[in-house]
Design a protein around this nucleic acid. Sequence first.
DNA 1: TATTGTTATACTCTATAACTATA
DNA 2: TATAGTTATAGAGTATAACAATA
Lengths: 162, 162
Amino acid sequence: MADALEPEQLDTYFALMESVSLLHHAVEQQVRAAGELSYIQFQLLARLADAPDRQLTMTALADGVVYSRSGLTHQAGLLEKAGLVTRATSPDDQRATLVTITQAGLDRVAAILPGHVDVVRDLLFDPLSKEDLDVLGGIMGRVRDHMRAQPPRSVSTRKRRT
Amino acid sequence: MADALEPEQLDTYFALMESVSLLHHAVEQQVRAAGELSYIQFQLLARLADAPDRQLTMTALADGVVYSRSGLTHQAGLLEKAGLVTRATSPDDQRATLVTITQAGLDRVAAILPGHVDVVRDLLFDPLSKEDLDVLGGIMGRVRDHMRAQPPRSVSTRKRRT
DNA sequence: TATTGTTATACTCTATAACTATA
DNA sequence: TATAGTTATAGAGTATAACAATA
């Protein structure tokens, strides 16, 4: 409209955003129905479940989840209250807090995952061929790496001395 | 973990969600900085700007934006208060409300768009080849069509008589 | 002085249910 | 009876700034 550019590119962008919005909405409902968690809480637990020793510092946990620190503190507090994680000061760095997923947390993730995979398969994988998926995986992997390499726009942007 | 499945597929899904999350966060900030709007408000205005006669009913406006009706009413109210849209009863159907974008609304979109395109180009298009983009566009277009064809999980799920 | 994390607060978005009015 | 939309209200997520403690 103003900066014209290739319209196809914009279409691609819009299709991407709308698709993921729909998918996000669907999995959000699945996670809540199957495990009484928000999608973000599920993501945090899933990250912890895959982490070495099943624990991460708050900062490490925040990375990639696009979060303000206070938001993560809030979510960690909710998860702790629900008995799904524990928090303790790191022995390596007294400033850091280590978040550890509990067995109840692991169970919760395990309870959600099968249905979760079903939703993703029905909505995302279903209309795609095996080859499409491979290509999409490669493309999004590159995009993610590229975005991660960009100056983080959330967590790290704490004090931007103007 | 539970329903095993192809791990590559899950990776693709995670890469997709994380990338879009980062992109969403970036454009959200751009839209707010350049035009004092939330991303969703921007999307609504952009939809109206592209619509025939620059107007849509509430229901048509909601489609694809994954919204509850009350949420859309709320957003439309904010946009109207800001002078960016007007609302009037449709002459065709007395029940329907026609939302029309104003000149100020068009100006606002025009003010946001160039910078918006810049962000999308830097974050999404930059690491991709022309061919990647074509492929991605085709894939996401198919995915979107597929998801739209699914029973809508937001707007239409109004009264699900159990 | 920089970094990790928490607290308090306020704001936005979203969702549910009850309601009005028109088809 | 079904559909379009609004209202009220409550809840969840997010962000900012001020703060304490450790490196």
